[in-house]
């Protein structure tokens, strides 16, 4: 089974240490979550995985053939309709032509009943789409681009509960077909509910958990948010 293995990663900006001996594994067919406070290094970690930021030391080995990444903030050319933006995106993200029908077939299979909404946004002018609609559209489109490792930086931020529900259904559908998904979020509940495993970025390392009890127990907390706060406030050492 294909894996992404990160072992003893050290990353720094000047004298500021972001990661020290951080390790993480993402497996094909599963969703791995990444939790961490603002500024803790989640996006930096994704930059390292994409080869945009150099690491001090540590090993990264990936058996995946095609990595796709959706950044936290993206704005689209306002004069385009979303189908033009879909075409533009696919020119970069897929080595083969991806059509609307291809995307609709997959999305409908993963989350029945959503194809009609996807078509509505497909024809909508980019300038008239809300931020949540764009993120929803981009996330679902990227999942259709035939990648085997998909990294999503807070895909549900600013997305309403309905679209958030469909994003997670599609992520689960893609994972069931063998795609490995690494997703970051500040919403602890959704990460715990939907991910096969998740990592809390604390004390410059990734601490792995598989369930809510283990997470709350490790940080001596009564709730998921309390566990997050305790983990984030630990001294960096």
């Amino acid at each position: 089974m294909a894996r992404l293995l990160v072992d003893s990663l050290d990353v720094r900006y000047g004298t500021h240490i972001v990661f020290h001996k951080a390790s993480l594994t993402v497996t094909a067919g599963s969703i791995s979550g990444l939790l961490g406070p603002n500024g803790s290094g989640k996006t930096t970690f994704f930059d390292v995985l994409c080869g945009l930021k150099k690491r001090e030391c540590g090993e990264i080995s990936s058996a995946f053939s095609k990595l796709l990444y959706l950044s936290q903030i993206i704005s689209t050319p306002p004069v385009f309709r979303m189908f033009d933006i879909f075409k533009m995106t696919m020119l970069f993200c897929s080595d083969t032509r991806v059509t609307q029908q291809h995307a609709l077939d997959k999305i409908e299979k993963w989350s029945p009943g959503i194809a009609e909404r996807y078509c509505e946004i497909w024809n909508k002018k980019s300038a008239l789409c809300s931020y949540g609609e764009k993120r929803w559209f981009f996330t679902l489109s990227l999942l259709c681009a035939n990648a085997d490792l998909v990294i999503l930086d807070e895909p549900t931020a600013g997305v309403d509960p309905e679209f958030r529900y469909h994003i997670w259904r599609c992520l689960e559908g893609a994972a069931a077909e063998g795609v490995a998904v690494l997703v970051s979020s500040h919403n602890v509940d959704e990460i715990v509910a939907h991910c096969d495993d998740f990592y809390m970025l604390s004390q410059r390392r990734f601490n792995r958990f598989t369930d809510a009890q283990g997470f709350m127990g490790a940080y001596d907390a009564q709730s998921l948010d309390e566990a997050f706060i305790h983990a984030a406030s630990l001294p960096k050492g």
């Binding site: 945009l52 950044s71 903030i73 993206i74 689209t76």
Partner: peptide, 14 residues
């Protein structure tokens, strides 16, 4: 500056 390159244009090929 819009984040478009960061999302889609970071490999040598792209």
């Amino acid at each position: 500056e819009s984040g478009f390159l960061r999302s889609f244009v970071y490999t040598d090929r792209t």
